[in-house]
């Protein structure tokens, strides 16, 4: 078969292109066309979901092999990432301002990891100070991609993936505040988690 015939037979074998699917346009309540935004959002969400599910599977495997050591490894990895992302952030002594910086850092890095500060009714102030000078406050995490990934396969909470997150906050806050910061889980719930942030004094 000469070159021209080969090209012809190849082009004959080529499957015809699929007919273009007419995308149904999504119209918002004000009549705006937002079809492309919806598609973009769905694609981003699928990517996030696939990445997170993969990470959870890896973390689960790591936990089986390294047992509690997996938590330590994940913590250190998260801490490094937090410290790296926050290294050029403006330094402050104010914890709420530092949390705001972390929130902005997450958002700037396309990380939709919302959290809010929580003050119990009987508590006079948001931040409480202990006798050792350590400051404490509580945080609530609602739409957490780690929790969603864990539930996806029925994995338990408070495992290595959660430790990665504690590490991230410790690393970022330590870089911003210049003090030792520890984030601990008080309660891991089905729809929200409650965490306690302790920022130690410079002297301790």
């Amino acid at each position: 078969m000469n070159r021209t015939n080969r090209r012809r037979s190849r082009s004959r074998r080529r499957t015809p292109p699929a007919p273009a699917v007419q995308e149904k346009e999504y119209k918002g309540h004000q009549g705006n066309t937002r079809g492309h935004h919806v598609k973009e959002m769905e694609a981003t969400r699928t990517t996030l979901q696939e990445t997170m599910t993969f990470m959870t599977a890896l973390a689960y495997g790591m936990e089986q092999m390294a047992d509690r050591g997996a938590n330590g490894m994940a913590f250190v990895a998260g801490k490094k990432l937090g410290a790296k992302l926050a290294e050029t952030s403006q330094k402050t002594d104010d914890i709420t301002q530092a949390l705001d910086t972390v929130r902005k850092l997450l958002s700037a890095n396309h990380c939709n990891w919302g959290f809010e500060t929580f003050k119990r009714k009987a508590q006079p102030t948001l931040i409480t100070k202990g006798a050792d000078g350590a400051e404490k406050l509580e945080l609530v995490f609602r739409d957490c991609m780690i929790r969603q990934s864990l539930f996806r396969y029925g994995h338990v909470q408070k495992g290595s993936m959660c430790y990665m997150m504690y590490g991230f906050f410790s690393g970022a806050l330590e870089a911003i505040l210049g003090r030792r910061a520890v984030l601990e889980v008080t309660h891991a719930g089905q729809n929200a988690c409650l965490k306690c942030l302790t920022v130690h004094s410079k002297e301790s």
């Binding site: 929580f118 739409d143 969603q148 539930f151 996806r152 719930g189 089905q190 729809n191 929200a192 409650l194």
Partner: peptide
């Protein structure tokens, strides 16, 4: 002081607890 973690709702063996006025997290 309720943070709407829903643990009580999931755990109650009698399904006696009901919660309203919270945002449910959208799972994957």
């Amino acid at each position: 002081d309720c943070i709407a973690c829903l643990s009580c709702v999931y755990l109650c063996p009698s399904m006696a607890i009901n919660e309203a006025g919270y945002t449910a997290v959208k799972n994957f």
